[in-house]
Amino acid sequence: MNAANELQVVEFGMGGDVFAVPVAIVREILDYAPPSPVPNGPAYFLGLTDVRGQGVATLDLRRRLGFPPAEASLATRILILDLAQQGSALTLGVVVDRVLSVTSFETAAIETPPEIGVAWSSDYLLGVVRREGGFILLVDIAAIFTGTEAASLALSALAPTGT
């Protein structure tokens, strides 16, 4: 494969589905530890994860996509993602059931996401890649957590709480 014609991704699983995000936005992959709670956030906002002294807003991707909640297991991971939002960088932690691999595939293999047949909005998908036994769903994290929403969560996580 020619590097200019391939996309390197981190594949992860949630339930029986396989998702992927570009390696370029993944800063690191952490073993799961419960985030420190922050009050008054949406149900999918779990709190803050300490990443080398920085409090990173951590979100439950299962809940955000409408999957039923699941208990954390030994395979549960937190993807630390650096997203470009309106000219600045935003760091988010995203909890996933398990990380499967880092892999590459040809950009020509990326198909348009289906409009129906998935349990969540296809607006959250950049595309799908066929593979033996199913599909890999390329997730548009920026679309799932809109710039305003993500920035608001990051700011509310940093705001002092009243007593």
Rank of each mutant, 00 (worst) to 15 (best):
N2H: 14
N2K: 15
A3G: 03
E6Q: 15
E6N: 12
E6I: 07
Q8I: 10
V10P: 10
E11T: 09
E11P: 00
F12N: 10
G15A: 09
G15F: 07
G16H: 04
V18M: 11
F19I: 10
V21L: 05
V21T: 14
V21S: 06
P22H: 06
P22E: 14
P22Y: 02
P22Q: 13
P22V: 00
V23Y: 02
V23Q: 11
A24L: 09
A24D: 14
V26N: 01
I29N: 06
I29E: 00
L30Q: 13
S36G: 03
P37Y: 00
P39H: 01
P42M: 01
A43V: 04
Y44E: 14
L46V: 05
L48I: 06
T49A: 05
R52Y: 02
Q54F: 09
A57C: 01
A57Y: 11
T58N: 04
D60L: 07
R63V: 14
R63L: 15
G66M: 06
F67N: 06
A70L: 14
A70M: 15
A72K: 07
S73Q: 13
I78W: 13
L79A: 01
D82Y: 00
A84Y: 01
Q86K: 08
G87K: 03
G87C: 03
G93F: 07
V96S: 00
V96H: 05
D97C: 05
R98W: 01
F105M: 12
T107R: 15
T107Y: 06
T107I: 14
A109T: 11
E111M: 02
E111C: 02
P113V: 04
E115A: 03
I116Y: 15
I116Q: 10
V118F: 11
S121F: 09
S122K: 08
D123Q: 08
Y124M: 01
L126R: 15
V128H: 12
V128Y: 06
R131D: 00
I141H: 08
A142V: 09
A143H: 12
A143Y: 12
F145E: 00
G147F: 02
T148E: 08
E149M: 07
A151K: 12
A151M: 02
L155Y: 15
S156M: 09
A157E: 14
A157G: 15
A159Y: 11
A159C: 03
G162D: 02
T163C: 05
T163S: 10
